[in-house]
Design a protein around this nucleic acid. Sequence first.
DNA 1: AAAAGTCTGTTGCATTTGCAACAAATTCGT
DNA 2: ACGAATTTGTTGCAAATGCAACAGACTTTT
Lengths: 213, 213
Amino acid sequence: MKTLYPLSSFNKTELDDFESCFHPIQKTFSRGEIIMRLDEDNGYVGLLRSGTAHLVTTTFDGTKTIIDYFEPGNIFGKRFSPCTQVDPYLVMAKTRCTVQLVDYDRVITCCEKCCKKHIRLIDSMILTMARRAQLHVEVLGKRSIRGKLMSFFYHISRSRGSASFVLPLSLSDLADYISADRSAMMRELKKLNSEKIIVSHSNKVTILKDINV
Amino acid sequence: MKTLYPLSSFNKTELDDFESCFHPIQKTFSRGEIIMRLDEDNGYVGLLRSGTAHLVTTTFDGTKTIIDYFEPGNIFGKRFSPCTQVDPYLVMAKTRCTVQLVDYDRVITCCEKCCKKHIRLIDSMILTMARRAQLHVEVLGKRSIRGKLMSFFYHISRSRGSASFVLPLSLSDLADYISADRSAMMRELKKLNSEKIIVSHSNKVTILKDINV
DNA sequence: AAAAGTCTGTTGCATTTGCAACAAATTCGT
DNA sequence: ACGAATTTGTTGCAAATGCAACAGACTTTT
């Protein structure tokens, strides 16, 4: 396996700094609740402290699409999640979760002391945003479902530092995230298993072989 | 057509501020030259002033993939373009072009005066980065070539404020950017023309109809 | 503990897409 | 202004993918 790849999320120090530097307000949401509407009016940045949440958009016909998924330590909100004027983007609680909210303006404006911590935080937020965008583009950029799956698996494997891992999404949601038909994805998963490239049961995966994707 | 959608690039004021606030050095590159290698060592942020450039990555088998394209007013470089440790990401001159370069640290660190212009610049850079990532994810997220094409066309149309426009990429490069086989894309373009949804000749496109994608 | 809802897993079939290969038009470099 | 390189445009065919539809397992709610 490859070398450890930094997680696209805040570490312990940054989590502490986020609290002490920005003084966020904390809120709890239950499954299915809308944490944030990413539109022009939204001025908040959210930091997920517990649970999982998804960034979803709804198309004309009511189909939901998963743009991004958040785990504890991930940030989202104004500027740190893509947003247009045309389609509604929502951050939605996938499980019960705790979120810390802060005004974007407070984030981007240097504090009186121009403190180093503050600058490091902004940098880290920009970095994680670039990383998550890259992950999705890299995965979606593969022309086959096999390529998308393996690209995503390698990413997760690297970030976890292990060839075995539990997927951060259910298989249904994964199909949505990689923009593939679920049944076609299941078929491909079965093939990958039969060719001994991976071993998987539900959302537990072990990579056996590095293949070119 | 929809309302005007802000361009994912700097406006005149921001271009001026970029120069006066960051004091970039200016360089010229000819077609095919590597402007920047987006790796751990790169500490620069680039602002394209003239010409066009692509963000490309090369896969194991030597295939190039276009991750992003840059036009005058676009920024790229450390933190503002995705970058991993595993794959080489390159910013490459597509035509002869002029670039202004500045240290990322100088961008992210507040200047002595904590000037408003500076903060607005950082904000704008973060915003444009989010927008470009979104565009690509939205386009790649469509399951059919037709969907990808129309999604991209609507975006360009909105950003230009007109139903007629010249594509910012050659058709070959567009196929690459939307991650589709070029011949399959050409076939779909022909269909879109015959169904009178668009009129296109080479890379000049006019949208005739809004369809659900 | 039952019911409702969500998620995994599967199949047949039609359609879309990718691949390979080629010709013609256009653009680029010297 | 010439040749080289790139880009557009096309086709037949095989393979991959999406769609529709269903059954059973697992979770959550009441």
